[in-house]
């Protein structure tokens, strides 16, 4: 059933997936937009070389112009450069932290749902993590890990690891519970019984039969997780956990601009649109990938 495609030798499975993905218009648009955002924020600074932290006090609060395509902020810093610099951080943090949380959550969920003996300890562990108050937990992590990480990875990479770690470690629990719930139901299905009766071992069972059937809730968690990670990153900077204060990220640009919403609406619109567009494109990408990966839909 699930691996029906694998049993038909002439065409490779990946080719089928690509064909299905290509025919999914939303997925293609999502992929193009996402790539465009990534290219802009990572390669854009080579073209637009303005320094995102340079204060030009004579050009405060400027509307968009030829010199400043996105305008300037309250200290006269170039908003386009800040958006690109912020995007680099936000997208990297969003993707990495989300991947970490999803990997952790799916693993715990799969193991707890599949192995009855692991269910109790793993779910109690999940409950403990769910119960811990987020802010004090993050503060403890800063106190304990900031200096050692900065010492071994350098200040910038150390901060990045700390932020990604902090977000990842505090946001995997929902995924774990969701995946476990679905696995509990799946493992009683007939095809699992059938697979077991032909002697499939546990590892293969999870990888071949269980995992592909819980991909869609994982995909939803992943898309929502990116948005949550980008916003959480901005919250971390208030604890002094984030990047240095003059370093822009989308979440922080949006937060700082809220007070100026009435006078300079553009300043909330740029980061707001950037975050939404990223999340939307990843969502469509995820939709297409899920359809492409699902052999039942692929056949249609």
């Amino acid at each position: 059933m699930t691996d029906a495609a694998a049993s038909s030798p002439p065409r490779s499975q990946w080719h089928d997936i690509w064909v299905q993905f290509k025919s999914h218009r939303g997925a293609l648009v999502g992929a193009v937009v996402f790539l465009a955002i990534v290219i802009t924020v990572f390669l854009g600074p080579l073209v637009w070389t303005a320094d995102p932290t340079f204060v030009n006090i004579r050009a405060r609060n400027k509307p968009p112009s030829f010199e400043y395509p996105f305008g300037t902020d309250q200290l006269g810093r170039d908003m386009l450069a800040r958006m690109m610099a912020g995007g680099r951080v936000s997208i990297s943090v969003g993707l990495t932290a989300m991947s970490l949380a999803i990997t952790l959550g799916s693993t715990v969920g799969l193991l707890a749902g599949y192995f009855r003996s692991l269910d109790w300890p793993l779910m109690r562990l999940t409950e403990i993590f769910q119960s811990l108050p987020l802010l004090p937990l993050l503060l403890v992590m800063v106190t304990l890990f900031r200096e050692p990480l900065a010492a071994s990875f350098g200040p910038e990479r150390g901060t990045f690891i700390l932020i990604v770690g902090a977000i990842g470690v505090t946001s995997w629990m929902a995924t774990a519970r969701i995946v476990r719930g679905s696995v509990l139901a799946l493992k009683e299905r007939e095809f699992v019984l059938a697979a077991r009766s032909i002697g499939t071992d546990d590892f293969k069972m999870i990888l071949r039969h269980i995992l592909p059937n819980v991909v869609s809730p994982i995909m939803v968690s992943a898309t929502l997780g990116i948005a949550a990670a980008i916003i959480t990153e901005s919250a971390l900077s208030f604890l002094g956990l984030g990047f240095p204060p003059d370093f822009p990220t989308w979440g922080r640009l949006l937060y700082d601009a809220v007070d100026y919403m009435q006078q300079y609406p553009a300043r909330v619109i740029w980061p707001g649109v950037a975050i939404s567009l990223t999340v939307l494109s990843v969502n469509y990408l995820g939709d297409g990938l899920r359809d492409a990966l699902d052999p039942r839909i692929r056949g249609r």
Binding site: A227, I230, I231, G251, Y255, V258, G272, I275, V279, L280
Partner: peptide, 25 residues
């Protein structure tokens, strides 16, 4: 899809203040 993704990715510290500016102010 569009509304729910935008609804989730725009944080409440922004939507809340936006509503206040529009409907209260």
């Amino acid at each position: 899809t569009f509304i729910s993704m935008v609804g989730f990715s725009v944080p409440t510290f922004f939507t809340g203040v936006l509503l206040i500016v529009i409907f209260s102010v």
